[in-house]
Nucleic acid binder design. Structure first.
Lengths: 338, 338
DNA sequence: TGTTGGCACTCACCGCGGCCGAGTGCCAGC
DNA sequence: GCTGGCACTCGGCCGCGGTGAGTGCCAACA
């Protein structure tokens, strides 16, 4: 086990490196922190920390920088989330309070988070898994072509075209529309599949193909609708990455463009509580030199979606975690109110 | 006026510089292009071109690079749009053809354009104002509460609640729905107001209030929902900007995050035909070292929105313009079909 | 055993100077 | 008006040594 002082040294190294972006040496450490020991002692401690893999030196004769493992220990044991100041909290509330609709809430949240943390912000739209179907509408566009419109209780409207295997009469259409609505209206998305399962059987043999096609499209729509969307912002902050950034920034930009990657990233985080993934802890290769701080947010006690930031592993963890937590809390409040 | 050969020299300089990203000298020019004259002659021509401000030299003893003015002349007079090859066109069609809804069309278009041009792609959602109405749907939510859904030919769906002054029967609803659609379906938004003007008169006195309310809401939707949205992609391509890119990339990223800036950018372009804005021709300062190639697209002959790419002034103009034009054309087709 | 001062060593960084070569402008000749 | 020749410029590329921050090791000390 590492002694108390050695942990203190690690903490000091992390703090200095995050601040200066340069490898930190033993002498500088003793000067900037009152550790009460001489540089020589610190050197011994550093050697031990390096032995354990918490820090590394980029060149033989240079200072040390924290490794992913070092940051991990720092985040887990050596620091605590830095709370926002009262003015900051007020500013957050004011800014988010001005939102007019869901898109606006998410948009403002992204901008706010990017500004507060000076990093790339990612906000997932609230999950719609608990939404219900308000109405399903079927329109005939051509003899064998229908339009399916699904309206949810959250006011969302989704629309799809359906190419029928066979022409479908107006009366059959009206029939299907009526039966469909009587079954699914007011029901939760998740329940729709079994509610409509046996519907084709009650139709004429000629029409069953079309009915099945319509149902398949409906189910597909619901699945897609519950699929999570997200918004990102603050990509300009990537330019603050460091000197070697041309090489680093590209895979990050590429990863950020792949919503799938980001959704997986957020999905891997814990449902409740804040998650910090550091460097190589991120499964995606392009994000190996970044850290992701994420947390769930929701209108009630339960998280309906997640938000977070992506930044260099060399980031101000306490401050970032504080900002992420605070923003998540206030977004939850706003959602609960609206 | 510049002689024919001097224009040829300018064209060669642009082509070489775009390819190599390095200042091009007189000797290299004569070697790579069969101009039929010696380097000395080319030097004279270059001096003249520099005098006129079409090219410049970064250092006293280096080759020349085109200025914004040089690129402008190149685009206007010295080149033509490079058409896509047949396989490319097929690939575009296949890729866009797989889209399931408007969001998907726009998303695919952005990805496609970014990939084809290897630059940042910007696609504006079809504007409502220039669209036509495909269908208006009315649903009864409660005795005196309706839902109005407007579906446009571009696949966009807008939805509103209507609180009626008086209860409205199902038959009257069906009647209104039918008459409304027979009048406005297929018509442009702009024409809707006079088309429905006298509609209330043909209803029972009791229902006129509701009909008027519905119509008011419909008109309001058409007017109010002109909010333009857009999608961008391919920001990872910004890393191909050049060596000095850390300084250049940041304002570009910042500009791209401001949708207002981009909308203004596209708005400034001509409504029909392709627009190329080179370097300082862009009003926004952050985009002074980029060129923007944009074009309108639409389901019919008329443009309903714009799309384009943002890249370094040193870009392959013929190729980029070809790709932008081709994508716009096929997106228009897809929208018309769906 | 842990801490400290001393000391030799390493090596990235910086500034200097010289060389090289691509590219230029000018000019006289065809 | 084109061409070859020529002197000149100057950015980029070594190779050089000096500098200094930082290290590891060791002997001495509490």
């Amino acid at each position: 086990m590492l002694s108390e002082r050695r942990l203190e040294v690690l903490r000091a190294i992390v703090q200095d490196y995050v601040g200066t972006e340069e490898p930190v040496g033993s002498k500088a450490l003793t000067e900037r922190h009152h550790l009460g020991v001489s540089p020589a002692t610190v050197r011994n401690d550093m050697a031990a920390l390096e032995e354990e893999g918490f820090i590394a030196q980029p060149h033989t004769s240079a200072g040390r920088i924290p490794t992913d493992k070092g940051y991990r220990l720092f985040v887990d044991k050596l620091t605590s989330v830095k709370p926002m100041t009262a003015p900051e909290r007020r500013a957050i509330q004011n800014f988010l309070g001005g939102a007019v609709d869901l898109d606006d809430v998410v948009g403002r949240t992204v901008r706010l988070l990017a500004q507060l943390t000076r990093q790339v912000a990612v906000v997932q739209y609230p999950s719609l898994t608990r939404s219900t179907v308000r109405h399903v509408e079927l329109l005939s566009l051509a003899p064998a072509r229908l339009m399916l419109v699904v309206i949810t209780d959250t006011g969302r409207v989704e629309q799809r075209h359906v190419d029928c295997p066979a022409p479908f009469g107006e009366s059959a259409l009206a029939d299907l529309r009526a039966r469909l609505n009587s079954r699914v209206a007011g029901r939760r998305f998740a329940d729709v599949p079994q509610l409509v399962q046996d519907l084709p059987e009650s139709f004429e043999a000629d029409d069953r193909g079309t009915v099945s096609t319509v149902l398949a499209t409906l189910l597909e729509t619901l699945v897609e609708e519950t699929e999570e969307r997200l918004m990102i912002g603050g990509t300009a902050n990537l330019t603050r990455f460091g000197h070697d950034f041309p090489l680093v920034i590209r895979p990050v930009l590429e990863a950020l463009e792949e919503q799938v990657v980001l959704l997986k990233l957020l999905g891997e985080a814990e449902d409740s509580g804040m998650t910090v993934r550091i460097g190589h802890e991120n499964a995606h290769e392009g994000l190996n030199s970044t850290s992701v701080v994420s947390v769930g947010y929701g209108s009630g006690g339960e998280a309906v979606a997640k938000l977070g930031v992506v930044g260099p592993t060399r980031m101000d963890y306490p401050g970032t975690m504080g900002a992420v937590r605070a923003v998540a809390r206030y977004v939850g409040q706003i959602l609960a109110e609206s």
